[in-house]
Computed example of a mutant assay.
Amino acid sequence: MIREMLDTDWSRVAEIYKQGVESGIATFNTECPSFDEWNKSHIKECRYVYEEDGMVVGWISISPTSSRCVYKGVAEMSVYIDSAHKGKGIGTALVNHLIEESQKLGYWSIYSAIISINKASIALHKKCGFREIGYRERIAKDIFGEWQNTTLMEYRAS
């Protein structure tokens, strides 16, 4: 079941995010932000969780890509699935839900910068209609100190 993310979901959202940090392929962050930091950097709309048997097992949200008003319809997407629940279609359901709901709110471009070795995330994005628009070479070091590229992907509303 997909529903709006509540502030009270933060502990599970943070646990799932920490799994991404520890994987070394989901984010360049080395620790999970506090709820206040995360809340300030993410758009209040289009925050969703996937709940299974009463437990949050995945989440998705968007962040602004620019503070300039001409880019108000452009956002960067984050999607994280609990490692014990991957491969069940949860990511696909969340991404498709976010695309549909974000378009209703006037978003025309959803962007993702994915660590290039995260082949599962790239495949998920392609499955949901994203296209590769470029990459950034050796953009940052992962938690293991290795330089990584990011693959840039975009979904454009028709």
Rank of each mutant, 00 (worst) to 15 (best):
M1P: 06
M1Q: 08
M1C: 07
I2C: 00
R3Y: 05
R3F: 04
E4N: 07
M5Y: 12
D7I: 09
D7Q: 13
I16S: 03
I16M: 07
G20Y: 05
G24T: 15
A26D: 00
A26L: 02
A26Y: 02
F28A: 00
F28D: 01
T30F: 04
T30L: 09
E31N: 13
E31M: 14
C32M: 13
P33Y: 09
F35W: 15
D36R: 15
E37T: 09
Y48D: 02
V49I: 06
V49D: 02
V49T: 01
Y50L: 04
Y50D: 01
M55V: 07
V56F: 05
G58S: 07
G58P: 04
I62S: 05
P64N: 13
S66R: 05
S66K: 05
C69Y: 15
V70H: 14
Y71I: 01
K72Y: 12
K72N: 13
V74H: 01
V74C: 08
A75V: 12
E76K: 06
M77P: 08
V79W: 02
Y80W: 12
D82H: 08
D82W: 06
S83N: 15
K86S: 14
K86A: 14
I90K: 04
L94S: 09
V95E: 03
H97T: 00
H97Q: 00
E100F: 06
E101W: 04
L105Q: 02
L105T: 00
L105M: 05
Y107R: 00
W108G: 10
W108L: 10
W108E: 08
S109R: 13
I110S: 01
S112T: 11
S112R: 09
S112D: 12
S116L: 03
N118P: 06
N118Q: 09
N118L: 08
K119L: 02
A123C: 04
H125K: 06
H125A: 04
K126V: 11
K127H: 12
C128V: 00
E132T: 14
E132Q: 15
I133M: 11
R136E: 10
I139W: 08
I139G: 07
D142E: 06
D142N: 11
I143P: 04
F144V: 12
W147G: 13
N149V: 12
T150E: 02
M153N: 07
Y155T: 02
A157L: 07
S158A: 11
